[in-house]
Design a binder for these strands. Sequence first.
RNA 1: AAAUAAAUUGAGAUGAUCGCCGCGCCUAAAAAGCGGGGAGGACAAAGUCCGAACACCACAGCCGUCUUUGACGGAGAUAGUUGUUAACGACAACCGGCUAUUUUGGUGACUUAAUAGCCAGGACAAGUUGAACAGAAAAUAUGCCUAUCCCGCAUUUUGCGGGGUUAAGGGUGAAAUGGUCAGAUAACAAGCUGACCCGUUAAUCUGGUGACAGAUUAAAAGAGCUAAACUCUAUUUGGUGCAAAACUAAGUAGGUCCGGCAUCAGCCGGACGGGUAAGUUGCUUGAGGCUAUGGGCAAUCAUAGUCCUAGAUAGAUGAUCAUCGUCCGCCUUUGGCGGAUACAGAAUUCGGCUUAUGAUAUUUAUUUGGGU
RNA 2: UCGGGGAUCGUCUAAUGGUAGGACAACGGGUUCUGGUCCCGUUUAUUGGGGUUCGAAUCCCUAUCCCCGAG
Length: 115
Amino acid sequence: MLSKNNRLHKEKEIKSLIHRGQTFFLPEFIIKYQKNQKNSSRFTFVVSTKVDKKAVVRNRLKRQLRELIRGVLPKVHAGFDVLIIAKPNSLSLDFAGLTKQMTFALQKIKLLSDK
RNA sequence: AAAUAAAUUGAGAUGAUCGCCGCGCCUAAAAAGCGGGGAGGACAAAGUCCGAACACCACAGCCGUCUUUGACGGAGAUAGUUGUUAACGACAACCGGCUAUUUUGGUGACUUAAUAGCCAGGACAAGUUGAACAGAAAAUAUGCCUAUCCCGCAUUUUGCGGGGUUAAGGGUGAAAUGGUCAGAUAACAAGCUGACCCGUUAAUCUGGUGACAGAUUAAAAGAGCUAAACUCUAUUUGGUGCAAAACUAAGUAGGUCCGGCAUCAGCCGGACGGGUAAGUUGCUUGAGGCUAUGGGCAAUCAUAGUCCUAGAUAGAUGAUCAUCGUCCGCCUUUGGCGGAUACAGAAUUCGGCUUAUGAUAUUUAUUUGGGU
RNA sequence: UCGGGGAUCGUCUAAUGGUAGGACAACGGGUUCUGGUCCCGUUUAUUGGGGUUCGAAUCCCUAUCCCCGAG
């Protein structure tokens, strides 16, 4: 789990992010991101019932995504709000595959530093 | 012994690294640190089909109207009896009925008994509705065919017309206006008569808390099915839901009005009123779990002992790796390799109902094979 | 935490409790030199499970799935 500084949880902020943020598509997720005025980057995750009807499966996917972000967090540029929407394809990947796809995406949109 | 079904049981362990949420210690407070806790067992956290606790609102108790201690009209729920329960449409026991199989007695209608399963099980004997196809006829039964008798006419057989008897018989159908055996009258015949069987209604008696059961007597209007069709009868009834609700501090967005500044756009100040976001409580010790004893056929109740076992708030309880365990398959069988390890994730709490779940073990039932 | 509606051939859509109908599609045949158009025929369905009824797509219960709404 991410610490509270790195969580995005206000409903208004999420809505404004959905409306104004830039979007990046992958077969596994949709990533929306936007600059904020803070010192740290904040993340939130959406896994809808369309991905899977079982709460167990959805919760597991959410936990894996959070863990993944926690791993790359030191390398992420500060000052961004990020919303990650999972798609049904992501269930077919294991943790290593998810990590690969996510790092690729974050590098593409230049949130990830090379260090 | 195997297979299948049902019920019960049961549903992994340890370590490493990196993390999350409460609680306690420490602290003025926080951070850090330390300690300890953090996902279920079908009674599902699920579905949200019922019920209750708790809270608020409305109210004098379902709703509407009126001439308001009531009347009229309307809506919903429940439906054998007794009990259990905080409550229920749940549960238990009993009563009654239906179906299937076997079985006892009888010429027969029918009946005796056992086992298994099922029942939303008030009323069709207040009224209304509906019943395709087939069939003479489907609810006011009886027109028709057939049968049979009498009269008249024609006549070889027999045919035609009129009248009488409507009881048996009439391919049907889910269902045909009780049934069986015998007898009499007679042209043929029928509850026409007798005995019996089944069923209905009423009264009395006996037993049972009661549903009801048994016995006796009487009456014949022997009355079809359908109320999970309208309807009638009896009993009964508030709404919203923890995002309920209470408290704390702050006084922000958008709006209206007034005043000032400004060419306009707009800006500043004040008032009204408003509801947005935050924290705390509600919140987890409860109609609680486990064990023993006792009451009760049982559901369940009483007493004693013992235990405390999540409480998040866009939502923690995890991720990755390794080793072992259990099961299955294959092989080169002290072992190796591969695969599997179910259903499922708390959101105020609780009682029921419904529904998801792999292996092992146990019990019961059925089937098959083998042995005696 | 609650409330409401729905499910019929591959698709769309009918059906008082009484033979599940129609259109398009698909397939086969005919017409044509060939294809299209046109004509004829065939195939395919009441979401699952129980109940009421002589009889259920329809009535009742229950489950599954889908859609919509409130805070």
